[in-house]
């Protein structure tokens, strides 16, 4: 599909078929979840030293479980068929996926030579509005605040036969210039065969 057509599909679906919710509700709910995780997941044998690696992992896991279901809703609403290649997949993720669920279109850039990985650059990120990372000297280095998005992409792609890996490489919350995520295609998942029936 041509790039402009993809944007039109995203626009169309977002306008006509999506129930909207107040963005602040989302932002604040998500913020509460992350804050609670930071309180709950503590490095063993310390009083209140947050284990940010565990928080990242937990956010990713939550996102993964969301992605597994979200893809079905996405396909039903957007009516996009199978992608012919990974470039098209990237376009759809950015211009339809993020558009219909979050009303943003992150830019797809920085393709690797073998066309198996790309960067998503988030000019805006509704999850991170009003957010300041805790000032404990470690959160800035270790916490990926919006890590749930990585999980969503991973889960959603898995359901359409693509094993992928996604992680953030920079975040404005950490003081970087941009918020960027790297998505890498690991492999296409083969069709499963029915078990042998003797």
């Amino acid at each position: 599909m041509a790039s402009s057509k993809v944007s039109r599909v995203g626009e169309e679906v977002w306008k006509s078929r999506i129930d909207k919710i107040n963005a602040e509700v989302v932002t604040l709910t998500y913020g509460t979840i992350v804050a609670q995780l930071c309180r709950d997941l503590i490095v063993p044998n310390t009083a209140s030293k947050t284990d940010y690696t565990a928080v990242n992992a937990e956010l990713d896991r939550m996102g993964y479980n969301m992605g597994l279901r979200l893809i079905e809703d996405f396909l039903a609403k957007s009516n996009t068929g199978q992608c012919t290649n990974f470039r098209e997949t990237a376009e759809i993720i950015s211009k339809v996926g993020f558009k219909v669920f979050m009303n943003i279109t992150p830019t797809v850039t920085n393709w690797s030579q073998d066309a198996k990985s790309f960067h998503l650059v988030f000019e805006e990120n509704p999850l991170a509005d009003f957010v300041e990372l805790p000032d404990d000297g470690r959160a800035q280095e270790e916490l990926w605040y919006s890590n749930i998005l990585c999980g969503v992409i991973r889960g959603a792609l898995e359901m359409v036969q693509m094993q992928a890996e996604a992680h953030f490489v920079s975040d404005v919350l950490r003081g970087n210039d941009t918020t960027e995520m790297r998505v890498t295609l690991v492999r296409f998942i083969e069709d499963e065969m029915p078990p042998d029936d003797e």
Binding site: N65, L68, R69, E72, D73, A76, K77
Partner: peptide
Amino acid sequence: IWATLYVEYVVKSPLAPT
């Protein structure tokens, strides 16, 4: 059936497994 019944009532059911 898929888009309006399966997705709405099975996939989106919070109690149903993935």
